[in-house]
Design a protein around this nucleic acid. Structure first.
Length: 243
DNA sequence: CCCCTGCTCCGTGTGCCAAA
DNA sequence: TTTGGCACACGGAGCAGGGG
């Protein structure tokens, strides 16, 4: 259901990328029985469940690996702190329902909950901490084959909006921005139009983040927001706009 | 008794995809 | 298009056992 011609997010999974992934997946499946030294015949191989098990194992590993995401977020926070855009930050640890607390220059506390692609139930597992002046959900998607438009729509519109209304929790904003943004796997339209908008963070060259400010009062969001209005992304350079 | 190491358990978080 | 289930891995907590 498209409420507006404006896309929910500028970047997209290109058809050619999708086709390449599909073709590779098919090729992988076709030659799966010939890979490795399991010594099984084709029939035995498919009967053994080896392929399925191996796929699930790899998928689980990728889903559970937080290192890349953590490195990206912490590099950004370090960058902001080094430039005096924030006073400091700390990682809150696994016991909390949020991941980072950022002390802004005006002494306010911004709590950050990092998430994956925003597609799935897990998007709704968050708890705005009592000490937070601001609460932000930051999506970091590790899968270059995942469709950013689908994820943004699913996450912001379907999952988060419903949860915010249901739990009456204030989420001040959603950030969609990760280590794949602006890479070959997920080129950034903002940089393609204007390469000078990139910021160098450590060894990375990162595009401006996509930031979605949320309504201040959850009750107001009972009015369905149009893509082009309530959820329109702001495209701001990191060098001038802390989270 | 204390400390270290290695093990198990289980809560948590992930993205995909089938069903509604 | 939305929703919820699924199978998986990570990682912290708790515990046991061994050595000093």
């Amino acid at each position: 259901m498209a409420l507006s011609k404006s896309p929910i997010i500028l970047c997209e999974l290109r058809d050619e990328t999708k086709q390449r992934i599909d073709a590779y997946a098919e090729a992988l499946q076709k030659s799966a029985a010939q890979i490795g030294d399991h010594g099984l015949t084709d029939a035995e191989f498919w009967d053994s469940g080896l392929f399925r098990s191996a796929i699930e194992k790899i998928r689980g590993t990728q889903a559970a690996t937080m290192e890349e995401k953590r490195n990206f977020v912490e590099a950004i926070l370090d960058h902001l702190q080094a430039r005096g855009k924030i006073r400091g930050w700390l990682s809150t640890g696994s016991g909390e329902r949020h991941d980072y607390e950022v002390r802004l220059n005006n002494a306010r506390v911004c709590a950050i909950e990092t998430k994956g692609c925003l597609d799935g139930n897990n998007t709704n597992i968050f708890e705005r901490p009592a000490n937070a002046d601001e609460f932000v959900i930051w999506s970091l998607c590790q899968n270059p084959g995942s469709d950013p438009a689908h994820n943004a729509w699913s996450g912001i519109h379907t999952r988060l909006s419903a949860e915010i209304i249901h739990k009456k929790q204030i989420v001040n904003g959603v950030i969609i921005w990760d280590m794949l943004c602006g890479t070959q796997g997920r080129p950034c339209p903002k940089l393609e139009q204007e390469p000078s908008r990139a910021t160098t963070v450590g060894e990375r060259r990162v595009p401006p983040p996509c930031i979605y400010p949320r309504p201040r009062h959850p009750k107001r969001s009972l009015i369905p927001c149009r893509r082009a209005e309530g959820t329109a992304p702001m495209h701001l350079p990191v060098s001038s706009h802390p989270p």
